[in-house]
Nucleic acid binder design. Structure first.
Lengths: 200, 200
DNA sequence: CTCATTTCTAAACAAGCGGTCAATTACCCG
DNA sequence: CGGGTAATTGACCGCTTGTTTAGAAATGAG
């Protein structure tokens, strides 16, 4: 064979994710990546392709990261509203876990998507679609189980909750963790769902 | 005196706002501005200063634009919940009015704020603070008037609504106007506020 | 040991960036 | 009708961007 890699690509990918997360796509130069990942310019291109290709891999890495976190918190929950608030708590916890408040890499990407090529743009938009799918399924169950007394359709309720989540994703960028908790608590209250534990 | 300006600075400022709104700060080059505003590069610098100074003026212009729109819709409304939903409707209408769905220039700026100098960053963050102030005042009135029956504090309710609004601001970038309407309708429903007209 | 294969290193590339300049042009006032 | 003043013009600056190249270095197989 030949000379082996002097670094772990997966580790470097993770570091790249953290950098993009903190700085955004456009504010992160290739030089930044070279400095932070501590690998040579050429090695970067050789293993990940160009900047946008790297970003696509970063996005996929992040997505897997986030969704595994969400699903881990979803496991023991039941259907409908309990499931919804397990989901929302997982979102809160995921946003609170990061060292610096950078919001959600994917939601941030949606907003600065002008810079991306159509395929990458599609990948980014896919995230919102998936989110909508999750929430819609949950709200349909909640309505079917009679857990929420409203004249609204499950679709409208799902839109409501998805927009709420998107709001949380961007608000967390300001580091307003308490506002996130309040927001979820308020949603629980107005939906008539009594959460155990932390109520103000 | 001397030679007069061959263009209207206010008009050019407005055009610059539209461009920044559509493309974002970092994705908009000075060349883009020169091409779109149809004024010379040097004239641009001469009248507005450098790119960031121009962006600051754009932000101020946008803010005045938006707040005058909001206040115009707030005029005939009363206090508390009616005022809240007049506010939310104004937000919806403002977002729907734009030819392309670009979201909110200020909220977009909050997310890509890494690129700004501290003073401009402060100006951008100020927007969220103002929003919080508006909503908090409204919710305090609503609670005081007994329009909302919940065990939550006005502050927590305000966090809830502000995050909802932030979600609307970013969701509108995807062009999901119907989702915005649904979201507001759902909020009205769960708050027990009966809106006249468009329900579902 | 030798060679084929692959990574690494550092330098360089063209293109675009934000920002500036001297020279020119157009205007208003006296 | 000049003359002073300020806007305009288009070329130009140094720098950074993303990307590529040719050569040196390091590995495992025969």
């Amino acid at each position: 064979m030949a000379r082996p890699l002097a670094f772990d690509p997966q580790e470097k990918l993770h570091q790249a994710m953290l950098l993009f997360w903190r700085q955004g796509y456009e504010s992160t130069s290739v030089q930044d990546l070279v400095d932070t990942l501590q690998i040579n310019r050429f090695s970067l291109y050789n293993t990940f392709g160009d900047k946008e290709a790297l970003y696509e891999r970063v996005i996929r890495h992040y997505r897997a990261h986030v969704f595994s976190h969400l699903e881990a918190h979803l496991q023991p929950a039941s259907e409908g509203l309990p499931r919804l608030f397990a989901y929302l708590d997982a979102v809160c916890e995921g946003l609170a876990r990061q060292p610096e408040p950078c919001g959600c890499l994917l939601q941030n990407s949606v907003i600065s998507r002008n810079a991306f090529s159509p395929p990458l743009q599609g990948l980014v938009d896919e995230f919102i679609t998936t989110l909508q799918g999750h929430v819609l399924a949950i709200m349909e169950a909640a309505v079917a189980l009679g857990q929420v007394n409203t004249e609204l359709s499950p679709a409208a309720l799902a839109d409501f909750v998805v927009i709420q989540i998107q709001g949380m994703l961007v608000a967390s960028k300001g580091g307003a963790q308490e506002a996130l908790q309040n927001s979820v608590a308020a949603l629980a209250s107005v939906l008539g769902y009594a959460k155990l534990g932390l109520s103000n």
